[in-house]
Amino acid sequence: MLEIKNLHVKLEDEDKQILKGVDLSVEAGKVHAIMGPNGSGKSTLSYVLSGRDGYEVTEGEASLNGLDLLEAEPEERAAAGLFLAFQYPVEIPGVGNMTFLRTALNAQRKARGEAEISAGDFLKLVREKAKSLKIDADMLKRPVNVGFSGGEKKRNEILQMAILEPKMCILDETDSGLDVDAMRLVADGVNALRDAGRSFLVITHYQRLLDHIKPDVVHIMAGGRIIETGGPDLAMEVEKNGYADLLAKHGIAQEMA
């Protein structure tokens, strides 16, 4: 599904290397989690994979089912099945959530050479998906994310995921700013989308999200690299002992992480 090899990334405007050789392979149907201290490069990885401006890939490669992600426009990556659930979903005043969802879905279908969805079918689809995420009709009518609570914004991200049906979902700190109930709702939404043909990369600071979204593989990222890979136990270990021991083991100073 997702193949990342020796990925090196620096900031475009600054001489600052963020990713220093990331290797990662996510198989179809698997949930991988990436944990790591602040500044380890987790969010940068998610932005580079989805094509945000401001970064320069200096070395390495990344592909999604054979598509060279680094050469593709963000919309091409999306049409190929990549989805990034934002840590801070963006507010777009004046554009209705429904319009946004339908524009996105039809754009992806068009890019894949599929027919546009009819207004009736779309409405049915959105209603069905929204219901399971406890998103009410009012939230669908309002402008994209405007006046949404933190929990509503994150649920709206998952709703987009449910409607766009991507193959590779990256969740960038989707648990940040959520209370326990909101987190459970979001996790339930993600779990409902787990499928043999769909993979997840869950980026998080804390183990608690992984209580709800059970990962197959856990990676620890620090200093711009993946320094440790293991099973769900690895997340428990970090939760218990923190990152200090792991960083020391790999010779990464805490402030450098």
């Binding site: 989805s50 094509g51 963000p74 919309e75 554009v95 524009t103 996105a104 754009a107 992806q108 890019a111």
Partner: peptide, 19 residues
């Protein structure tokens, strides 16, 4: 944000102008 959802650059720009 819009492009990451599959909306092409120019269509996304048009949506933001309407916004």
């Amino acid at each position: 944000y819009l492009r990451s959802r599959g909306v092409p650059h120019e269509e996304a720009t048009a949506l933001l102008v309407l916004s």
